[in-house]
């Protein structure tokens, strides 16, 4: 059983996006299955600074794919924290009621910004989780883009909210150390090329319970991203946690039912 916690619809393919959501879900699951991946979690078709209409469209597409195969396709509500608070809370509730599992935040607003607080409190109250983009960038950094120290600040402000920090490779060792003491933060293995040693380092510093497999498909190849887990020096238990059990816990899926 392999769950990929960090995927997107095929946003780079305009022709593909003309297909109805169920067909997109079927195609994505077939591709994932070819790589031995059983389930995927969709973070939405991201584009920068969407307005309310854009947010609803992104999330409607994710909901459509989740509802096609709710046993194998999971999804998060994409939000822009710069939008009105009433809209944000309403959108969280609409998406969770429709079957999504949490919230995805990108770089519209930095994680230190107080505008995230209402989102974090609402998510905690609904016992969902937030997956937050993060990257220590030397170049190409977006305005307001969060790095792992920003995520650590967010985690300290909201210790009751479960946070999944994206992009292990992008945060590197420093990023792992930033979140080490914040036990409400886990990390996904996506980001950049599969640079060696970081999966083992994260397991050593955080424990294998806090590391989740993520590919960032379709930006990345399922195969190369799985390779960093399969090629890492891990025990079978650590690998099993990273590839499935931790994601199942995050998504609140009973693992035995997944294995059936």
């Amino acid at each position: 059983m392999i769950i990929d916690i960090h995927t997107h619809p095929r946003w780079e393919d305009d022709e593909f996006l003309k297909h109805p959501a169920p067909e997109q879900a079927d195609s994505m699951l077939a591709t994932a299955a070819r790589h031995g991946i059983d389930s995927v979690c969709l973070l939405g078709r991201f584009y920068p600074y969407p307005d309310e209409e854009g947010i609803r469209a992104i999330n409607d597409a994710t909901i459509g794919m989740v509802q096609r195969c709710p046993e194998r396709v999971f999804g998060l509500a994409f939000l822009n924290p710069a939008l009105e608070p009433d809209f944000l809370v309403g959108e969280i509730d609409r998406c969770l009621e429709a079957g999504l599992s949490g919230v995805k935040l990108e770089y519209e607003v930095n994680a230190r910004d107080a505008r995230l607080d209402l989102i974090m409190e609402t998510v905690a109250a609904r016992d969902a989780f937030v997956l937050h983009h993060s990257w220590y960038k030397t170049v190409q950094k977006a305005f307001q883009e969060s790095d792992p120290s920003d995520i650590a600040c967010l985690a300290a402000r909201h210790p009751r909210t479960r946070i999944l920090m994206a992009h292990l490779t992008a945060g590197g060792m420093r990023g792992v150390l930033d979140i080490q003491k914040h036990h409400n933060v886990s990390i996904d293995t996506s980001g950049s090329q599969p640079f060696s040693g970081l999966v083992e380092y994260a397991v050593n510093k955080l424990g294998s319970e806090r590391v989740l497999f993520g590919s960032d498909y379709p930006i990345r190849d399922f195969a190369s991203q799985l390779g960093r887990i399969e090629g890492a020096k891990l025990t079978d238990l650590e690998r099993s946690r990273i590839l499935s059990e931790n994601a199942a816990r995050m998504l609140k899926i009973p693992i035995p039912s997944l294995r059936s």
Binding site: Q193, P194, F195, S196, D221, A223, S224, Q225, L226, G227, R228, E230, G231, A232
Partner: peptide, 9 residues
């Protein structure tokens, strides 16, 4: 990089 990634790709 992890060798396995290129092999699997």
């Amino acid at each position: 990089l992890y060798t396995r990634s290129a092999v699997m790709k």
